[in-house]
């Protein structure tokens, strides 16, 4: 079971309080009805499925209830960072290696 840092509660908490919510930074188009079938298909179905650092969404379902974003390494299952919804996509180069969890 993972520990996940909620950027709203500012606490690192057990995964059981959270729900996964798919890839991050895929905005719903402004005017879907004007999109071509190809573009709509791209939005609806295509995901990057990265091996390595992956931008994804979680919801602190049984906590503050907020959706937020995370960068998780899909190989090691380590979270590189979590950040509030609407915040810009962090640059991978600037993400420090994860720090050891502190004391109790």
């Amino acid at each position: 079971m993972l520990l996940i840092h909620c950027p709203y509660c500012d606490e690192t908490l057990p995964e059981v309080e959270f729900a996964y919510a798919g890839e991050a930074h895929i905005a719903r188009p402004e005017n879907p009805s004007e999109m071509s079938d190809e573009d709509w298909q791209e939005f609806l179905f295509m995901r990057t499925n990265t091996k390595g650092p992956y931008y994804e969404r979680w919801r602190h379902l049984h906590g503050c209830g907020r959706f937020f974003n995370a960068v998780r390494d899909t190989v090691s299952d380590k979270f590189l960072t979590t950040y509030q919804a609407g915040a810009p996509r962090p640059d991978l180069d600037t993400l420090l290696p994860p720090q050891a969890e502190g004391g109790k």
């Binding site: 059981v16 309080e17 049984h62 906590g63 503050c64 209830g65």
Partner: peptide, 9 residues
Amino acid sequence: RRTVFDGAA
């Protein structure tokens, strides 16, 4: 805190 207790919110 809101949390989970034995599967219940």
